[in-house]
């Protein structure tokens, strides 16, 4: 790849436009690069690209860097950047959109956050409510062998939880309107797809 080509991919408007068209993606255009989100973000020290640069990379259409960045997966939805953003960008909503985009593009196993979110959703849709103990088990099962090690590291936290009956292993109630919920979801997902 020549240097010029490399540069071209760094400023690829087609890629920028693709991301502008995802849910809430259009907000990224109005970032004026003040950098307030960066100092605001509690997870910034773990990010490959801190939020401002992440948005700048999207505006530039820098495909490689955007696709590789762990930025959205570190977002905790604490909302602080969103309430502070001087340009009114709902940053956590943008991050939701990016996470959905990345999961669709790269598969739910490409990032732990993608898998966890998907598992959470699956449990919820199936039962109408969350069942935290089940969610945890499902997640580690789906994540595969390497995750088991992580799970074991968590045992010191999980054990007292179980002891204190805060992770009931018996399934919680499911709701009556499960199919109603599913219909609502499906319709909403279809509408959202039409919307952009």
């Amino acid at each position: 790849m020549t240097a010029a080509n490399n540069q071209a991919s760094r400023y690829d408007p087609a890629f920028a436009n693709e991301l502008y068209s995802i849910e809430n993606g259009h907000y990224i255009k109005q970032c004026m690069q003040c950098g307030l989100c960066v100092v605001t973000c509690p997870a910034r020290h773990l990010m490959d690209l801190q939020p401002r640069k992440y948005f700048k990379a999207i505006q530039a259409g820098d495909r490689d860097r955007v696709l590789k960045a762990n930025t959205p997966w570190l977002c905790t939805s604490c909302n602080l950047c969103t309430v502070r953003c001087p340009r009114g960008i709902p940053i956590i909503d943008v991050m939701h959109g990016m996470k959905l985009y990345l999961a669709q593009k790269q598969g739910v196993k490409s990032a732990p956050g993608a898998l966890f979110s998907k598992t959470f959703f699956d449990v919820m849709l199936k039962r109408g409510r969350q069942w935290e103990a089940w969610l945890t088990q499902m997640y580690f099962l789906k994540a595969g062998p390497s995750a088991i090690k992580d799970a074991l590291k968590m045992m010191d936290v999980a054990q007292p939880m179980v002891l204190k009956r805060r992770l009931p292993l018996a399934p919680a109630k499911t709701i009556k309107g499960k199919s109603q919920l599913k219909k609502i979801y499906e319709k909403a997902a279809a509408l959202a797809k039409e919307g952009h």
Binding site: E23, N24, D93, H96, G97, K99, L100, A103, G113, A114, S117, K118, F120, F121, M124, Y185, A188, A189, L191, A192, G195
Partner: peptide, 8 residues
Amino acid sequence: VANAIGDF
């Protein structure tokens, strides 16, 4: 959930 299905 929004991560898996979007905000809307």
